[in-house]
Design a protein around this nucleic acid. Structure first.
Lengths: 150, 150
DNA sequence: CTATATGCAAATAGTTTGCCTGTTA
DNA sequence: TAACAGGCAAACTATTTGCATATAG
């Protein structure tokens, strides 16, 4: 559970510095929360979890920390429908699956080519980021839905 | 400009009926706005444009109409970052490009295979929708940015 | 020491809801 | 005419901002 917490403090410090940002206990704490449970929490969920160890942390600080982590390239924002923005510390090439039944957001691995390879981007466009989001039923909910048919 | 307005009223009527929804002048008007200028407007932009022809239309109605159009499969929602949801009447296989410089959202054609083909979706997932969004610089802004280097 | 970050509270933006009236099928 | 849609205003949720204090480098 807590094993990851000691693995990356220097990495975080360096990454922040590279982007001209300062290391703070709150930024460490917010990053730890994202690494501990990789369920793509919203800012408010991060806030509630971070409060366990940092009871004085505020929502404004959580947003600030999340922005800092995005800026220095350690975290990605995930947007699903009209709902609140979610945050993902997995920076590998992957996409997100949103389950319409249970609301969970899951990481899905992509081919090594990456989804952008599948899109003929007309010349002239400079693509710096991409996000592929899938929607439907996750395996758990698909199984449950099948059982109801019997 | 207005040429499309008369092309689809029956189609809209039928599509709404198929989903158990009623045809109303407001829904027609909102759909016309989306078809007239395909720049992926937000709900508020749709509202402002619709008011020209339907001065009494309200925001609540615009949201209702947009939801109705999404429900009956004539319009897609487009989510970009933390900003307001945008709406797109192009139901062909395509993805969206968001320009970080000018904020425009542009349609980009995909290969016939579609971007989902590029993602190894683990077995068990039932994918019903997908959305590929790209970010970076659009051709116009890329050209402008290059000129500044001389 | 100085720029930057925090914490609090108030402000905004986007969206939804309730309720009554109007309209569609 | 009965169920659904519109209009208005209030409520709500997510996010941002202003400002005084604290702290990292």
């Amino acid at each position: 559970m807590l094993s990851r917490k000691k693995e990356i403090p220097e990495q975080l410090n360096e990454r922040l510095a590279t982007s001209g940002l300062r290391f703070t206990p709150q930024r460490q704490q917010v990053y730890n929360v994202l690494l501990d449970t990789r369920d793509h929490p919203t800012a408010e969920e991060v806030f509630l979890r971070a409060k366990h160890e940092s009871p004085d942390i505020s929502m404004a600080t959580v947003y600030n920390c999340l922005d800092a982590l995005v800026t220095c390239g350690l975290v990605r924002q995930v947007n699903v429908n009209r709902a609140a923005t979610r945050y993902c510390p997995n920076m590998n090439d992957h996409c997100h699956f949103y389950c319409d039944d249970c609301g969970k957001v899951l990481d899905v691995n992509c081919t090594s080519a990456g989804p952008v390879a599948g899109a003929k981007v007309p010349s002239g466009f400079q693509v710096t980021h991409y996000e592929l989001s899938l929607r439907g039923r996750c395996p758990d909910c698909a199984t449950k839905a099948n059982k109801l048919h019997h």
